[in-house]
Design a protein around this nucleic acid. Structure first.
Lengths: 228, 228
DNA sequence: CGTCTTATTGAATTGTCTCAACATGCGTGG
DNA sequence: CCACGCATGTTGAGACAATTCAATAAGACG
């Protein structure tokens, strides 16, 4: 994906990331590291160091539960950020794991603070991103609370494509890296329910789904479901 | 309530609020305005101006729904902040209404930006508050998704007292300003269910509730319910 | 003191979960 | 490269918690 579609771009721009011979302090921005499927970039309660941007692939963030199954708290697709919540405390409040082979950029916040480099503009960017996140979560809460399984899943699919679109991915067909259980955990549904709804959507001709390959056939129909 | 227990205190402190003859710029911090029960301090989609701190009383924040009933997205008790989410966009994403006769302090963000007054420390404070909010919402989402009505309500009551305690209110008995519908909306339950659970809790000797006057009798029992 | 809103309680309905059986895909090692 | 085994996904039947609808009770407020 292109840097200008990336969630870190406001920061990277400030840091004049793109150029050779830029005067960005050493060690602040680490670019395009590969992360293999199943690998983690940080664990819950790790000391907070960096914010990551997904350059390719996708991640899930989750809180490991004693009860066995993890609580998924977010999915992060291309261009999105992971780990900002660590800013509040000293530690990350969740684990981040690659759902498929992926790559990330890393912004080392501590090095950044040390340098004092353009701190102010950067903070503006962080504030903006955080408050967007808060607004999104409010939306999510409302959705989860009052909506049926069909509505949640339709909304989830629409949200996912909207986010991919915002990052320049225009196709209606793509790989969903996450399992039915992951989706269920995130949406507060049993994995069986997710499966059932998918088949129902498929029978209604709203989507086409084989294994992990998803194609949205009727966006309008999905919207209809999500909103009523 | 005392200023040192208030959510705005990190900011106020920076602004040397307390002192006569301080050099805080004019018009940045408006102190202790009264708000009558049922009055709003801002409406959804109002242009963002200020962050408010509750000095007495309580507020609900909600998104008016076309479908008739409002979606409550938060309750704000003494010492807590309202309106930070407006920082992301130009507008508040919800309406804020006093549940009882209350008073607020107001921090005018635009005036503040104009003055450039101690902007950096202030931004640090905002970032901290926002990321705390994000973490809280993750917690809330997890709670709402996987918990029964009993668990949600027990958790809600415990959370409420914890927040009051954090602000110096040590009593186990207090007025809950919000209606059963408000609570239901917030927790994703029908108001009838809230009512039923309250009666159940009362019969088990966990709480005592008459009208709007609530007393927690068995914190340990509530914790037991909330966590299992 | 009467009216209007809010809360309580009951009975029937329903959507989702749980448990269970079966199918399919994927990766590994022979 | 194939076959085996394990993880993941699908489908069905029954259970149950919360909702909806409805009727009554209790407060709040002018």
């Amino acid at each position: 994906m292109a840097c200008q579609d990336c969630g870190l771009d406001p920061m990277c721009s400030i840091l004049e990331y793109a150029e050779e011979g830029s005067n960005v302090p050493e060690g602040v921005l680490l670019r395009r590291r590969k992360v293999a499927r199943g690998e983690t970039i940080f664990l819950k309660d790790d000391k907070f160091r960096s914010v990551f941007a997904v350059k390719s692939g996708s991640f899930k963030t989750y809180v490991p539960k004693a009860s066995g199954q993890d609580q998924v708290v977010g999915f992060h697709v291309i261009g999105e950020l992971i780990g900002m919540e660590g800013l509040s405390g000293l530690r990350y409040p969740y684990t981040a794991r690659a759902l498929q082979d992926s790559s990330v950029c890393e912004l080392r916040m501590e090095s950044l603070a040390d340098t004092g480099y353009l701190l102010e503009e950067l903070q503006q960017g962080i504030i903006k991103m955080l408050s967007t996140e808060v607004a999104f979560n409010h939306q999510l809460i409302t959705t989860l609370i009052h909506q049926s399984a069909d509505q949640r899943l339709a909304g989830f699919l629409l949200n996912l494509t909207r986010r991919l679109r915002a990052r320049g991915m225009r196709q209606l067909e793509f790989q969903i890296g996450m399992s039915r259980s992951d989706i269920g955990s995130y949406l507060g549904l049993a994995s069986e329910t997710v499966s059932r709804v998918f088949t129902r959507f498929q029978k209604s001709g709203l989507i086409q789904l084989r294994h992990k390959r998803l194609r949205l056939l009727d966006l309008e129909g999905l919207r209809e479901i999500a909103e009523h």
